[in-house]
């Protein structure tokens, strides 16, 4: 067992080294793919943290994508802040906004929470498209990112992807994670056992908001241009939902597999983006009907194999 674990550890290290070295041996196309993979992974891992581990189906993650992106644009363009600081500020703004809306939004449960978060994002979309300061619906150019090299953006994205996995991995092994596991097993029972459900869920909501906002900043280094209709669009959350469900909701590896499939399918059908969403949607529905735990969940159930077990051995 010890041997297996150390082998696994070496495997992870080797893969990481390979990805870090990617710019030195692979073509720009492959680097781009891994970049997109990492960003999608980070975003969907955060949705997974909410939906898979806290039972919160949020359909409003795009609120934090928009806030993070706009924060990057506003701080770096209008105020001349360093780009990295602007990205971190984007995460901070997202956390603050999440905290602000948490009071009303946590009064909503289940479906109400889903629609509530979605409506909040739609509200932001309208506000931003009517706000002169951020250029109405025309949006903003994130000009300072021209100074960054493609490789820098790649490393940042890769870092974000790896960090998101590591974050969820360690979160689940922390006290918070134990609380979440207890809630997932039996909500009412865990409450009587003294698990503060509200605080656990709020914690996840804030973490997920902050990371999503910051990762969005990294993403807009790549996109360069931000506009309210796309930034606050539901499509971001659609991606996260499909990736997580297909890969395996409530498993750490799920979003990894899901993002891989997503990027692969998206590139393969790059000329027909609708078709790829159509296919992903069908696969996702099929997954819910046939394999509700997704690819990873089913593999774990059938083979008892867990690559990154959140449980303490």
């Amino acid at each position: 067992m010890e041997l297996l674990r150390s082998r696994r550890f070496i495997g992870i290290i080797l893969i990481l080294l390979g990805l870090i070295a990617l710019p030195y041996w692979a073509s720009r196309y492959w680097i781009l793919l891994v970049l997109l993979f990492s960003l999608n992974l980070a975003l969907s891992q955060m949705w997974n943290l909410l939906a898979g581990y806290s039972g919160l189906i949020s359909l409003g993650q795009q609120a934090f994508i928009g806030l993070g992106g706009y924060a990057l644009a506003v701080f770096s363009v209008y105020y001349g802040f360093p780009i990295w600081l602007s990205i971190i500020l984007g995460g901070t703004v997202s956390v603050l906004f999440a905290l602000l809306i948490s009071a009303p939004i946590f009064r909503m449960r289940g479906v109400y929470f889903a629609i509530g978060t979605w409506t909040v994002a739609e509200t932001l979309r309208i506000l931003f498209s009517n706000w002169k300061y951020v250029g109405y619906g025309m949006g903003l150019f994130v000009k300072p990112t021209y100074a960054l090299s493609f490789n820098t953006i790649y490393f940042t994205a890769l870092g974000a992807g790896v960090a998101s996995v590591a974050l969820v991995y360690f979160l689940l092994r922390s006290k918070l994670g134990l609380g979440l596991m207890a809630i997932r097993d039996e909500e009412t029972a865990s409450e009587t056992l003294g698990v503060d459900i509200f605080r656990c869920k709020l914690c996840c909501f804030l973490i997920s908001a902050g990371v999503t906002g910051a990762v969005s900043g990294v993403m807009y280094l790549h996109h360069i241009f931000i506009q309210p209709y796309s930034a606050f669009g539901i499509d971001w959350t659609v991606q996260m939902v499909f990736i997580t469900i297909i890969g395996g909701i409530g498993t750490i590896e799920g979003p990894i597999i899901g993002s891989f499939l997503y990027v692969f399918l998206h590139q393969w059908l790059s000329e027909y983006p609708n078709v790829s969403l159509l296919i992903l949607g069908s696969i996702a529905i099929g997954a819910i009907l046939i394999a509700p735990k997704g690819i990873m969940g089913t593999v774990q159930e059938k083979l008892g194999f867990e690559f990154l077990s959140p449980r303490r051995k």
Binding site: G110, V275, G281, I288, L289
Partner: peptide, 28 residues
């Protein structure tokens, strides 16, 4: 009907998937 009685989330997510499929079908 196949996901009824399996908790709140599966029917919600199936309908969500359906929504996205419909939108992209119409777009196509």
């Amino acid at each position: 009907n196949r996901v009824l009685g399996k908790g709140m989330n599966p029917p919600l997510l199936v309908a969500f998937g359906l929504s996205i499929i419909l939108q992209n079908l119409l777009l196509l």
